[in-house]
Design a protein around this nucleic acid. Structure first.
Length: 290
DNA sequence: ACCCCGACCTGAGGGC
DNA sequence: TGCCCTCAGGTCGGGG
């Protein structure tokens, strides 16, 4: 589920409550999600010095030289709860009052003022503790490609990354070594925005189309962040509200419905075991692919 | 190196 | 009502 916009939305909501705050209470309730959970005592009592995003990972820098890495997997979400109802001095960012823990609440991080709960039905998320000094060399982070919203991602970077990739463009866009943060939804939406067929051989995409696609990826992700991300099933912003970008999907989940531009029915197919949606008219097969 | 596929896990929805 | 199948936003690791 969560792709870059959902992770970014989550991070922006958590930041004011985490950065500079001490994790007074930490509870990893499941022994493992995708990976074994850290030991709570190795996190509890530390102050969070920074919270950053790399790809779909959130990295909380702790004041003891460790970094807590968090990933939302397919169905993960954080919710912010008030610690108590006497929080007059706390900015009312959350409408959620404390409730009993729910099924699939796998982690709890509490500061003096709020409690953050991580819920993840499918348990594909992860919490990993690693040394801050070498964190970028950690296997989870070492081979990641450029951030799509950073200046070093442009048509030239994309063109270089597609070299040697003979397979269909859309699965390649979802390869984090090419560009990070782009999952099944945003790959489809960006390809529609760029007017490129998802089956175009990746290495056939010339500089002009690479520039157009890089722009489309950046614009699509930026718009999604601005609307709080996409809520299909599980994802929620940490204040409990759904995202809204799903209301503006051009193709994702729209199989058989008329294209908003040309009214041609949106097509669906399978690529790399994932559903792909596209408009056969607005995203023609490109030959030569400049 | 690339590429394909299965694995991880739970829940929702459709067909019978 | 229940069962059984398919599908779902991600990523890793094994094999060809």
């Amino acid at each position: 589920m969560p792709e870059l916009p959902e992770v970014e939305t989550t991070l922006r909501a958590l930041s004011p409550h985490l950065v500079g705050q001490v994790l007074q209470r930490v509870d990893f309730r499941a022994p493992k999600l995708r990976l074994p959970m850290p030991v709570a005592a190795d996190v509890q009592g530390r102050r969070v010095e920074a919270l950053e995003r790399r790809a779909k990972y959130m990295l909380a820098t702790l004041n003891d030289g460790q970094t807590l890495l968090m990933h939302l997997g397919m169905s993960g979400r954080f919710s912010i709860f008030y610690q108590n109802d006497t929080s007059d001095t706390v900015t009312p960012i959350s409408r959620l009052a404390p409730t009993p823990l729910a099924t699939h609440d796998h982690a709890v991080l509490a500061t003096d003022t709020v409690e953050m709960r991580y819920n993840d039905p499918r348990r594909f998320g992860m919490f990993v503790l690693m040394p801050t000094a070498t964190r970028l060399n950690h296997p989870l982070l070492a081979d990641l490609g450029p951030e799509p919203l950073s200046p070093d991602f442009d048509g030239n970077a994309l063109h270089a990354a597609l070299r040697g990739r003979r397979t269909a463009l859309k699965p390649v866009l979802m390869d984090a070594r090419v560009v990070v943060g782009v999952g099944n939804i945003y790959a489809a939406e960006a390809l529609f925005a760029a007017g490129i067929h998802p089956e175009t051989p990746a290495e056939a995409l010339g500089p002009t189309l690479c520039a157009r696609l890089a722009d489309a990826i950046r614009a699509t992700l930026t718009r999604a962040i601005a609307t709080g991300g996409s809520t299909l099933r599980d994802y929620r912003q940490p204040n409990g509200e759904a995202g809204h970008f799903q209301d503006t999907f051009a193709v994702y989940g729209h199989a058989g419905k008329p294209c908003r531009v040309c009214a041609t029915p949106i097509a669906q197919m399978t690529q790399a075991q994932r559903s792909t949606f596209f408009c056969p008219h607005c995203q023609p097969h490109t030959q030569g692919a400049r």
